[in-house]
């Protein structure tokens, strides 16, 4: 690990001005489960690490009746332990449980997860299908960006030096809905996804589908969603939807799976996830969090 300075500001403006001063030479620290590994490997060599854990307002985890607000310091285990997340945002709850292991989830944050922007970010498909909004603090005030516009590529987001994600917010659905997140990995505990698929279904027959680990960034499958709109999930419809959905992805081969396998299994999982989401909406599906692969 290279030598760096360490700062722990207690307000967002303080953090922003430090971040502006150092620009690209500064790195932001939340749980550190990704950052410290990269520091250790020497892939990043900042002059300063700005620890955001001194900023109290980032601890917020609150449902205001319309939006769930997830502050930058909220860890995955805090999401999993939250009743309102479990009850009103069950897809996010389900996805959070697939992330690494409890010792990592005690530290790792959802905001950190999306800011790391690895293609396999487990929280991303759930956030994509929920149309989450990223709230970014800048020195000229806050701005809100839909999660669909947030990711740029592997480890790249739209964030510029001096911009700090302070929270992610998600609107609660007022329709009857069901959802699911399926993570296919080689084993439980630590593995990154070979494919991650989230889907939602609602009573108006509106559907959403998103993937991680099968494209340079987490993606929505818009074409398949459009096709599904208003339709019942018959076998033929599912088949066609799966075909359209995999057009949105462009997987690579790596140590976890080949490109061909990923393409094939993505289609299988889209169908399974859609069916599960529908069954859950109708109250006869597997419980959220239950093993789906």
């Amino acid at each position: 690990m290279n030598n760096f300075d360490y700062a722990k500001p207690s307000t967002i403006p303080e953090a922003i001005s430090l971040y502006k001063k150092y620009g690209e030479k500064a790195k932001l620290l939340l749980g550190g489960t990704d950052l410290v590994v990269m520091l250790d490997d020497g892939v990043i060599q900042p002059d300063i690490v700005i620890d955001l854990k001194g900023i109290d307002e980032l601890k917020k985890l609150k449902f205001d009746g319309e939006f769930l607000h997830i502050g930058a310091r909220v860890t995955f285990n805090e999401l999993i332990d939250s009743e309102v997340v479990k009850e009103k945002f069950p897809i996010l709850w389900e996805a959070s449980r697939t992330i690494a292991s409890t010792g990592v989830r005690n530290r790792a944050t959802l905001v950190g997860n999306i800011c790391s922007a690895v293609p396999s970010a487990d929280s991303a498909p759930a956030l994509l299908v929920c149309n989450a909004i990223v709230v970014i603090a800048t020195d000229s005030g806050d701005k809100e960006v839909p999660i669909t516009e947030f990711f740029m590529g592997p480890r790249r987001t739209i964030l510029k030096p001096g911009e700090i994600v302070k929270e992610v917010k998600i609107r609660a659905s007022n329709k009857k809905f069901g959802g699911s997140y399926i993570k296919l990995g080689r084993y439980d505990g630590e593995d990154l996804a070979q494919v991650g698929v989230a889907t939602t279904v609602n009573e108006d027959k509106e559907y959403s589908i998103a993937f991680c680990a099968v494209a340079p960034k987490p993606v929505r499958a818009k074409e398949a969603e459009e096709f599904l709109k208003g339709k019942d999930l018959t076998d033929e419809v599912l088949e066609e939807a799966a075909k359209l959905a995999v057009k949105a992805i462009s997987p690579i081969s790596d140590i976890r799976a080949s490109k061909e396998y990923r393409l094939y299994v993505s289609g299988v999982l889209v169908k399974r996830s859609l069916k599960t989401s529908l069954a859950r909406m109708n109250g006869n599906g597997p419980k959220y969090g239950e093993r789906l692969v």
């Binding site: 620290l29 250790d40 620890d51």
Partner: peptide, 18 residues
């Protein structure tokens, strides 16, 4: 693994200063 304020964390990816 060690406990930080009662919660298990990985001390290999935690900076001492934290």
């Amino acid at each position: 693994s060690v406990l930080l304020n009662g919660k298990s964390i990985r001390s290999c990816i935690t900076l001492a200063i934290e």
